[in-house]
Simulated assay, not measured.
Amino acid sequence: MSRFQEEIEKMKQRRERTIKQIAVFVEVEAKLRAPVLTGNLRRSITHETQSDENTSKAYIGTNVEYAPYVEFGVASKNIPAQPYLRPAIEENRDKIRDMIREGMSL
C-alpha cells in the first residue's frame, strides 16, 4: 500500500470514529430531552452508523410507534409536541461542528 493510500485509510478511520462519537452524543442528548412517563421512549432511543468508501452517516431514533406523536404532537387531538430528537441536534450544532473539526484534524 502506498503512503497516499495509507493516509486515505487513516482519514476514513478518523471519519468513522468521529461519526460514531457524534451518534453517541446525539443519542444521549435525545434521551436527556425525551419526556418520561414509563421510560419506554427514553430507553428505546438508539443509534446506528454506516460508512462506505466516501461517506459516513448516523441514524438516531426509536422504533416506538408513538414516538412521532411525542416529537411532533397531534393537533387534531390537542396533544402538544414535546420535541426531543430535533433539539438534540439543533441545540448542539456548534458542539457537533467542533467534534467534526477535532475528529478530522490531522
Rank of each mutant, 00 (worst) to 15 (best):
E29I: 10
I22E: 03
D98S: 12
G39L: 06
N92I: 05
E16K: 12
R33D: 09
G73M: 01
D98F: 10
Q13S: 13
V36I: 09
G61A: 00
N92M: 08
A88L: 00
K57F: 07
M104V: 04
V64N: 01
R86I: 03
K20Y: 07
K12W: 04
Q82E: 01
P87A: 02
D98P: 06
R15P: 14
T18I: 07
K20G: 10
N63S: 09
V36S: 08
L41I: 07
T55D: 14
I100R: 08
T49Y: 01
S56L: 03
M11N: 15
E65F: 13
Q13V: 01
V70P: 00
E90A: 09
P83E: 00
P87C: 04
S105Q: 08
L85Q: 03
S76K: 15
N78S: 07
I96L: 05
T49A: 01
Y69M: 06
R97C: 15
D98E: 14
I8M: 14
N63F: 05
G39M: 12
M99H: 07
E102P: 02
G61I: 02
Q13T: 08
P80E: 13
P35Y: 06
L37M: 15
E48W: 11
I8Q: 15
V74W: 00
A58L: 01
T62E: 03
E48R: 14
F25R: 02
K31P: 03
R86F: 09
I79R: 07
M99V: 02
P80L: 08
P80H: 12
A75R: 12
M104L: 14
L41W: 08
T46E: 07
E27Y: 00
S44P: 01
A34I: 03
F4S: 09
I19A: 04
N63V: 05
I100L: 12
K57L: 10
T55S: 15
P87S: 02
L32E: 13
F25T: 08
I79S: 05
L106Q: 12
V64S: 05
L41P: 06
T49I: 10
S2W: 06
V26P: 05
R17A: 11
R33C: 05
R14K: 10
I22Q: 09
L32H: 10
Y69P: 09
V64W: 08
F4G: 11
E48N: 11
V28I: 11
S76D: 13
S51P: 13
D52G: 04
I60V: 13
R3K: 15
K95W: 09
E7V: 11
A67I: 06
R101T: 14
N40T: 11
